Structures are given as structure tokens and as C-alpha cells.
Amino acid sequence: MAAGGDHGSPDSYRSPLASRYASPEMCFVFSDRYKFRTWRQLWLWLAEAEQTLGLPITDEQIQEMKSNLENIDFKMAAEEEKRLRHDVMAHVHTFGHCCPKAAGIIHLGATSCYVGDNTDLIILRNALDLLLPKLARVISRLADFAKERASLPTLGFTHFQPAQLTTVGKRCCLWIQDLCMDLQNLKRVRDDLRFRGVKGTTGTQASFLQLFEGDDHKVEQLDKMVTEKAGFKRAFIITGQTYTRKVDIEVLSVLASLGASVHKICTDIRLLANLKEMEEPFEKQQIGSSAMPYKRNPMRSERCCSLARHLMTLVMDPLQTASVQWFERTLDDSANRRICLAEAFLTADTILNTLQNISEGLVVYPKVIERRIRQELPFMATENIIMAMVKAGGSRQDCHEKIRVLSQQAASVVKQEGGDNDLIERIQVDAYFSPIHSQLDHLLDPSSFTGRASQQVQRFLEEEVYPLLKPYESVMKVKAELCL
């Protein structure tokens, strides 16, 4: 049975990233139509530049190519590739079939990587351009969430054990800070992308030097003109047959890092959902379990974690691919890159769409948070109580021993009897502590235990987050809708 299948058929496997999760716009960027249309555009740009620099290419040939950029006979191309065992030459023939007058000058002087690699770089750039505003929107939604809850005390956790208090907004800023680093890295790697350009079979530009009869300047002009037509500021000066596969490492490393950030955020949300302090959106008709109707599973956060793990592992592909590119190139890269580049971007696209949807509907339960604080705060307040007693004339050592005994009794009630923490009640009825009984409410005010959390939130948002989001103001209103 021949390899390949009808990918629109229910009898043929289709990647869930495309069929179930990723956005239509990201799927289109990695589609065959987008790819092969870009090949034709690159052939047109090459012909236009070659004509401008004096090669015998007519206006009629150029116009014929322009008129057929979208006229792609995919069936013919597939048949040609089956016959020739070469995808680029299959599309040269297919393009030439609908451009008979231009057929002889299509791909003039070029090698397969002229269309293959340059198209990949265009796709990487455009895919990054799709991700950047999506990530900015996630940051914006979380920034709104953090600002609104900047002063809401909550129990902090280290080692997932109760620690000092923080605020809900401050905790959210930990998430935002990681995503801001990801946004900066995505922008950097996007701006650092260079075009492969017009380089020939081993990167020496020998074929173009021959076409222009040894004119170095025209060869350099050709490279520059096509690079500018493709919208790049610069091209690699040095290439082998391909652009260095280190570029793929750079791009997928940034995406993998984004995956790590999203995994951490969504894990926190899942843990908070278990504590009943916070939940992701839950639709009115949504079913959490087929057997347990009360369940409210954090399905979206779980999906993000599941896909983020996949995204983090994909960076190993370009690392290994770059390491086995012998001399000017081997074909070890080809099949692998067809999979890992598309999957990385479709996965990143999915987790950003999902995280935006989550961040637009996060639900906080202040009463649950308050109750958990009441359970733990008495123990945390013991040092403040000791200091207040010393100020009232008591002995630190005597007070410490009193607190120690009462704390152990209260802990026994919590752990052995399943009761509430009654340390404060014990202190309130103990005559030894009568000098500070009137101060206990103040000493137990949760806001006095959150330090500068709310001020940190305000400063972080104003100095770091809002300036970073400013270039994306025009796209901030787009909502994230999930079908599944």
C-alpha cells in the first residue's frame, strides 16, 4: 500500500493539533497551500530580480507567473513527485505547466533550498508574528487579574506546605514575570531571523556568478533584492546548502521555554482548584465526569500541561538535527523538520489560546482563602504575639514557653481530632496574655502579614508589564474561544 493518505478522510490519521486544537490561522501558515504558494512567490521574486539585473526574462513571463501564483494543481504535483521522487522539481514542473512561456526560467540558477529553506524562514517569521500578540493578550488578562487582587491576602506555599502570606495578585505576578520573559525572547528570536537568500547549491553562489558572467556586484544585488522582497532586513552571508540548523534550535528553545512557563502556571491553577481557592472557567453544560456528576475538573489547565510537556520535548529534535548536518548538509534534517517545526508552533498556539481562555474567566473564592488563612495564621502570628507581650512588660522566655504549650495543644486538636485551630481562643482565655487581649485582632490582621506584596504588584505592572504590552494595544480586544 502506498504511503500517505487522504487526510480529510475519517479513515486516515490526522494530527489532533490540526484537527482538534490549533487555530485556523496557525494551521494555514503550515498548510501545503501556504507552503507551495510561497515557493511560487519566491520563484517570481527571483525572476523579477534577475530581470532587473539584466537576464533575458520578459515582462510577459513575469506576468504569467504572477497570474498563476494561486493556480496550484495539487493532484498534478503529487503525481509528479511520485514520478520524480523530488518535491521541488515536482512543483517546478507543475508551475511550468500553467506558465508555459515562463517554464524555462522558473528556478533559474537556484537549488531546492532556495524555495525550501527560504519558505521555512518566512513561515517561522509569520508563525512567530501570530504567537506574539496571543502571548501579549494572556499577559494582559493576567495583569488585569493581578491588579484587581493585588491586596487580597492568601496563604503562600513553599514545598506545598503553608508559608508566609502573600497576595493573590502577587502570586499571579510570578506567572506574568515568566511570560514577559517569554514574550521578550519570542520577539528577540523573531527579529534575529535572517533570510537564507540566493546562495546556490553549497552556499557559494557559483551558479549565479556564472549567470551574471562573473559580476560579483550583481550577485550581491540579486541576494539583497530577493531578501528585501521577502520582507527581511538581512540575509546570511555564510550558508551551506541550507541555512544553519542552529536557527531551528533557537526558535524551538524559546517555544519550549514558553511551554515550561505555561505548565507551571496551569499546575498552580490545578492545585488551587483542589484547594477550592480558584477555578478555571466551567461552562453551564460542561460535564466533569461521566460517573461523578459533582466533579469540576480543571480540564483546560490539564490540557495545557499535557501539550506543554510535548512542546518542551520537541527542542531535542533540532538539537540532534543540527549535530548531524555533515559538511554542507545531509538530508537527516528533512523529514524531522517537516514534523517538529509545525508541531512546535501548533502546540504553542494551542496552549496560548487555551491559557487566554482560562485567564479571561478565572474565578476566585475569597471566603475559602480566608478560612485557610484562619487555619494557619495563628501559628504564624506567634512571633508577633511574643513581641507584643514583651512590649507590655512580659518575659520573652516565659511567653515563648506559654505559646509553645498552647500551640501544641491547638495542633493536637487540628491533627488528632480534625478540629479547627483554636490557638487564639486559648490565648484569649489565658490570664497571662490579658495585657494584649485587646491587640489580638490587630495582630491577626492578614494584611499585616503580606509585606509589600501589593506595592510590588503595582510597581511591576507599571514599570515592566504595561510598557512591554504597549506595541500590542491594537490587538488586545480579541477574545479566545474554545470549541473543545
Rank of each mutant, 00 (worst) to 15 (best):
G4P: 11
G5C: 06
G5Y: 11
H7E: 10
H7I: 01
S12G: 13
P16H: 01
L17E: 00
S19W: 02
P24R: 07
E25D: 13
C27G: 03
F30E: 07
F30K: 10
R33I: 04
R33T: 12
F36K: 06
W39Y: 11
Q41G: 03
A47R: 10
E48S: 11
A49E: 03
A49Q: 01
E50I: 03
E50T: 13
Q51M: 05
T52W: 03
T52R: 04
L53N: 07
P56W: 02
I57K: 00
D59N: 12
Q63H: 14
E64D: 04
E64I: 03
K66S: 10
K66H: 02
K66I: 03
K66Y: 14
N68C: 08
N68H: 02
N71T: 07
D73E: 05
D73R: 02
F74T: 01
M76R: 11
A78I: 02
A78P: 10
E79S: 02
E79N: 13
E81K: 01
E81Y: 03
R83E: 08
L84N: 11
L84C: 07
M89C: 02
M89E: 10
A90V: 09
V92D: 02
H93F: 14
T94H: 00
H97S: 03
H97D: 10
K101L: 08
A102D: 01
A103K: 02
A103V: 03
G104T: 05
I105R: 12
I106W: 02
L108W: 08
G109Q: 03
G109R: 05
A110M: 10
A110I: 06
G116H: 03
D117Y: 11
D117W: 07
T119F: 05
T119A: 08
D120G: 07
D120C: 13
L121A: 03
I122N: 08
I123S: 05
L124A: 05
L124Q: 07
L124Y: 03
R125N: 14
L128V: 04
L128F: 13
D129K: 14
L131F: 06
L131T: 03
L132E: 08
P133A: 06
P133D: 02
K134D: 14
L135C: 00
L135H: 06
A136V: 05
L142Q: 15
A146Y: 11
K147A: 08
K147Y: 05
E148D: 11
R149D: 08
A150V: 05
T154F: 01
L155P: 01
L155S: 03
G156I: 07
F157P: 05
T158M: 01
Q161C: 14
T166I: 10
V168S: 06
K170D: 04
R171L: 04
C172V: 03
L174E: 08
Q177P: 02
C180W: 02
L183R: 04
Q184G: 06
Q184N: 03
Q184I: 09
K187W: 03
V189L: 07
R190S: 06
L193F: 06
L193V: 03
F195Y: 02
R196S: 07
R196I: 02
V198C: 14
V198F: 03
K199G: 00
T201Q: 07
G203F: 01
G203E: 02
T204V: 09
T204N: 03
Q205C: 00
S207T: 10
F208S: 03
L209C: 03
Q210D: 05
F212Y: 12
F212V: 12
F212G: 06
E213I: 11
H217W: 04
K218A: 02
K224L: 09
T227W: 05
E228A: 11
K233A: 06
I238Y: 11
R245L: 09
R245I: 04
K246P: 02
E250F: 12
L252Q: 07
L252C: 13
S253Q: 12
G259S: 14
H263Y: 11
K264R: 10
I265A: 11
I265T: 11
C266Y: 14
T267V: 00
D268M: 11
D268A: 00
L271N: 05
M278L: 03
E279S: 02
F282R: 02
Q285K: 13
Q285S: 08
Q286S: 10
G288C: 02
S289H: 00
A291S: 13
M292N: 14
M299K: 14
R300E: 00
S301W: 13
E302L: 07
E302A: 12
R303L: 13
C304D: 02
C305N: 15
S306C: 11
L307C: 14
A308L: 12
H310Q: 12
H310F: 05
L311F: 09
L311C: 08
L314N: 03
L314I: 12
L314A: 10
M316D: 03
D317F: 10
P318H: 00
P318V: 01
Q320G: 05
A322K: 10
V324R: 03
W326T: 06
F327V: 05
L331Y: 14
D332Y: 01
D332T: 08
S334C: 01
A335F: 00
N336T: 07
N336F: 06
R337H: 10
R337K: 05
R338K: 13
R338N: 06
C340R: 07
L341I: 09
E343C: 06
F345K: 06
L346I: 15
L346W: 12
L346R: 11
L346M: 15
T347A: 08
A348E: 11
I351V: 06
S359N: 02
E360I: 01
E360R: 01
V363G: 14
V363W: 04
Y365G: 15
E370F: 02
I373L: 08
Q375P: 06
P378A: 06
M380T: 06
T382G: 06
E383S: 11
N384I: 08
I386S: 07
A388I: 12
V390Y: 06
K391T: 11
S395K: 08
R396Y: 10
R396T: 10
R396K: 01
Q397H: 00
D398M: 06
C399R: 09
C399W: 07
K402D: 15
I403G: 08
I403A: 03
S412F: 14
S412L: 07
V413A: 02
V413T: 05
V414G: 09
K415E: 15
Q416F: 14
D420H: 04
D420E: 01
N421S: 14
N421D: 11
E425L: 07
R426A: 15
D430G: 04
Y432S: 14
Y432K: 14
F433A: 06
S434V: 09
P435T: 12
H437Y: 05
L440N: 12
L444R: 11
S447V: 02
S448D: 14
S454D: 06
S454V: 14
Q456M: 11
Q458W: 11
F460W: 08
E464A: 07
V465W: 11
V465C: 11
Y466G: 10
L468T: 07
K470S: 11
P471K: 01
S474H: 07
V478A: 15
L482V: 02
